[in-house]
Design a protein around this nucleic acid. Structure first.
Lengths: 250, 250
DNA sequence: TGTTTTTATTGATATAAATCACTATCTTAA
DNA sequence: TTAAGATAGTGATTTATATCAATAAAAACA
């Protein structure tokens, strides 16, 4: 058992998490359970440093992995599962920023600014998570140029995604935003045009900035016009071209 | 005279820019005309490398400094003046991301991704701009750990700003968004509660995602309730507390 | 200096989208 | 296995906001 100290906006909580103590061995290249390409730039010794300063934990569906506002002492990777990255603010509904997947670094901008998490992360399905001490991570970025460069590339990609998302949320009307989200899920998350969505209609709304009722209505319209098939947790894209068109036209 | 090749989305343009060939000498610390704190981490030799690979140019108000979609071969700094950073998409109105000021790095995420500018930059007032070859910049980030770390901090700050802006645009209604923009201009750009706005109502709308008519109307409402004074290019914040409240409440 | 072009402002109208008020389903827990 | 709580779905209504159609001011121009 491991106890993690999580300080939320509404006070402090001592949250207890079940941890399986065995860690998969960390190696460079394909075999790496963290599957992050940037680890390729680390030497055996540097990799060992990471390995000595990482912890794994398992989370059930719906559990909070990281709480906005709490000290950000680690970066994290999903080893398996899926999680939502979102911001909270009392009196407002959440805002779902992206779906975190295995192989991708989850690191808030707060790490380099005020050491606070600037978003929350919660598992959507049972997930296994690896936490790496941020100071070690930072040290590697400072001493290993190739690693730093990869990290910069990673950040740039994230910034571009964010910029694109912001602009699209502003420009597109509801059908366009929802179509975009459905395509994102198909292309980036499930890599299939048919998927069992583990997001509620409400969460889909938090992702596209619409009310849950509007999500339902537009999903229905899309079904009526033969663009998708939508039943309960299942989404199937029937006419991808048309969906892309809706996404682009707005 | 210097000729810069700018490739826009609507074809290529050969744009000609008046350049004053003398450059201010580049030194570390306060004396540096670029005033970017991260240059502190560079040695005399590295600074010289920058100096050998930078170019200055002057722009009249309204001139495009950098065009979205064109190859991003340099990063840039404003030496003096102000510029708007915005995205364009045909059939849509622009989206104003932020106001660039002297001392801040202007570098799109595209530099590390596909070497394309992911946004346009246009001067709002007569401005002097310094272009630094990106390859030199990248080289320094790779070989100087402290410089890389500062760059990462810079990117994180930018990412956080972007995230905050995205969430706020989604959550807040028009008065909240406009109040936020007015406060941003007062606090971050003009550093005064009274300023001569060099943005049109339309641009203010591009910044807050509202129609220009709505900008006018809400500005008027704010004036009628004594929160601001607004005449033509002048904005004066009269009741800052109330404006903050509007910005926060929504 | 008038003249054109942009920008600001206003009121009326049309649309998009949220909210409210339910009912129906599906899950989860006692 | 039912009861309780969440989620999904639907229609009516309200609210926010864009669009349209003008006119008035200002700025750029020639």
């Amino acid at each position: 058992m491991l106890y993690l100290w999580l300080e939320g906006s509404s006070g402090s909580v001592l949250k207890h998490i079940t941890v399986m103590s065995e860690k998969e061995p960390l190696e460079s290249g394909k075999a790496n359970p963290l599957r992050w390409k940037n680890f390729q730039h680390l030497s055996k010794h540097e990799l060992q440093l990471i390995d000595d300063n990482r912890y794994e934990a398992s989370f059930r569906a719906g559990e909070v992995i990281l709480k906005q506002g709490s000290p950000s002492s680690s970066v994290l990777f999903l080893i398996s599962g899926l999680a939502k990255i979102y911001t909270e603010a009392d009196g407002h509904k959440n805002f779902l920023i992206e779906i975190a997947q295995p192989g991708a670094l989850v690191m808030g901008p707060g790490a380099y600014i005020n050491s606070r998490n600037t978003f929350s992360v919660a598992s959507l399905v049972p997930s296994r998570v690896c936490f790496i001490d941020f100071n070690v991570f930072r040290h590697l970025a400072k001493t290993n140029g190739a690693f730093a460069e990869s990290l910069l590339e990673d950040f740039c990609l994230k910034a571009l995604t964010l910029q694109t998302k912001m602009v699209n949320l502003s420009r597109k009307k509801m059908p366009g935003r929802l179509a975009e989200a459905l395509l994102y899920l198909a292309d980036e998350v499930f890599r299939s045009d048919e998927y069992e969505l583990m997001l509620t209609r409400n969460e889909l709304g938090e992702m596209t900035n619409m009310a849950k009722e509007s999500v339902v209505r537009i999903l229905k319209e899309m079904e009526e016009s033969g663009v998708i098939y939508s039943r309960a947790p299942l989404i199937r894209i029937l006419d991808r071209q048309k969906l892309i068109l809706i996404s682009e036209k707005g």
